[in-house]
Design a protein around this nucleic acid. Structure first.
Length: 235
DNA sequence: GCGACAG
DNA sequence: ATCTTGTCGC
């Protein structure tokens, strides 16, 4: 068991921030992932005006089929009462509890996880993807649809074009702004835990299928938002 | 004091 | 995040 709790819900903002500062030091920015056979995507949605939190995890097989289609290995949806409001910078305290509950119900353990949100591209370098990765003790990548912090230029127009996302007085590179699809607003990719930026970008690009979001996150997004094309949404 | 601000 | 119809384009 970790000496310092990885999270403690019901913390006042200033205490949550202090905890993030301590945990940020535990996040690994160098690659430390084994062979990837199971890729997971995680996302959180809300129901009933935000009263209910809905966590969705989708596990895909890697590599995809010859026709480019990904095989869904497992899906889990977990619902529980929402415990905290959304506060920029403290997103993990609102979403991670439900995500953990969903992972506990997973029969298979993924080798790499893509999370909807920032990884280290966070004011204190502990976005939701990093926090979840620390807790799960698994490699994670942050895939966000918009910027939380940092500076960047405009990435080129072609799919795969990207520019670095920097922050702080020393221009630290905290992520990348990636054109995941032509003519579409770019996404923000960053290492979560145990994944370097080059590797994070590599995996995200390899999971793009004519869409703006990589398959793991796209499918989890669908499930969490209830749109899920299929039925059997547990929870 | 004034903006910015993942989902 | 969520509330929401039709509409433009590959």
């Amino acid at each position: 068991m970790p000496t310092v709790p990885l999270h403690d819900w019901n913390l006042a903002p200033r205490d949550a921030i202090a905890l993030q500062r301590r945990l940020a030091g535990r996040v690994e920015r160098e690659d430390r992932l084994g062979e990837v056979r199971r890729l997971a995507g995680v996302d959180i949605g809300f129901e009933q005006g935000g009263e209910v939190t809905r966590a969705a995890v989708v596990v895909l097989a890697w590599p995809p089929e010859v026709d480019g289609g990904f095989t869904v290995v497992e899906e889990v949806v977990h619902r529980e009462p929402t415990r905290m409001p959304y506060i920029p910078g403290l997103l993990s305290f609102r979403e991670v509890p439900a995500a953990l509950a969903a992972f506990e119900r997973l029969a298979v353990t993924p080798d790499l996880v893509m999370v909807d949100g920032q990884g280290i591209a966070h004011p204190r370098r502990l976005g939701v993807a990093s926090h979840l990765g620390l807790w799960l003790d698994l490699p994670t990548i942050g895939v966000a649809k918009s910027r939380l912090c940092g500076r960047h230029g405009e990435p080129g127009p072609e799919r795969g074009d990207w520019v670095p996302l920097t922050d702080g007085p020393d221009d630290e590179v905290i992520g990348a702004v990636l054109r995941s699809r032509a003519k579409v607003k770019p996404i923000f990719v960053s290492g979560g835990h145990r994944v370097s930026l080059p590797t994070a970008l590599d995996w995200v690009i390899r999971c793009l299928v004519r869409t703006k979001l990589p398959e793991p996150t796209r499918l989890a997004d669908r499930l969490a938002s209830r749109r899920g094309g299929a039925a059997g949404a547990k929870g």
